[in-house]
Amino acid sequence: MQRDTPVVPGEFLYLKHLAISFVAWSSGFCPDYDYLSLVSFLDACPALDTFELSVSQDSMDHALFSGGPLRQMTGHHHNNLKDVIISGFCSAKSMVELTSHILENATSLERLVLDPGASDVRGCNDESTSCRPISRRMVTEARRAFSMVQNYILGKVPSTVELTVVEPCTRCHGALA
């Protein structure tokens, strides 16, 4: 089952900051949700300089992505996009495709932050003794997403782009393999 992403009606010529949040607490998103379709929002905002995508859910059921060709959307350029933050970066193929698209078509990109675990597995702070408890399944997904960054994203990051990848807390959720 595939869910349609709404098409943006018209353009937002002066919009500079766009934040999109997906929250699902019980059943999660459709495993084949097409994150690449969010490019239509970037296209509708030609002055956009900051894009934030936040994906938060208790469980993720994405099919394992074991390589193969990534889809590309040609003819889309995001000339003013400087800052991109993806919280809840996951191992879905379409999430990798969206991130690759941004790297290849945002000519002014200065900073890309990928947070595979969102705040759920981020690290402990000085005031707490441990991270918020999460399922083993979500820790596994965060590790898979981190692996996707290493395998499919790192090689595409231009030297002019500051890349930050937030790793799951090794103190609470074990070392990354």
Rank of each mutant, 00 (worst) to 15 (best):
K82Q: 15
T50L: 10
T50F: 03
I85S: 14
G67A: 10
G75Y: 06
S66F: 02
M60R: 15
D49R: 15
L36P: 06
H77Y: 14
S59R: 15
D58P: 08
S40A: 11
D43K: 13
I85C: 12
V84G: 02
L36M: 03
M73D: 00
I85K: 15
G67I: 02
L53D: 09
M73F: 01
G67N: 10
S37D: 13
L42N: 06
L70Y: 01
N80F: 10
A47T: 12
V55E: 01
V55P: 02
D83L: 12
G75M: 00
L36V: 02
S59E: 05
L48E: 01
V84N: 03
A47N: 15
G75I: 02
S40R: 14
V84L: 00
S87I: 01
L64V: 10
D49K: 09
F41Q: 12
D83H: 13
L48I: 06
T50W: 08
M73L: 10
A63H: 03
F51P: 06
F51D: 06
K82S: 15
L70H: 08
Q57N: 04
K82M: 13
C45F: 07
D58C: 11
V55F: 07
T50S: 14
G67C: 05
S66W: 04
G68V: 00
E52T: 11
L53H: 08
L48Q: 04
P46R: 11
Y35E: 01
R71P: 05
L70F: 09
F65S: 05
S87N: 14
Q57D: 03
H77S: 14
L48S: 10
F51G: 10
R71H: 10
G75E: 02
P46W: 04
H62I: 00
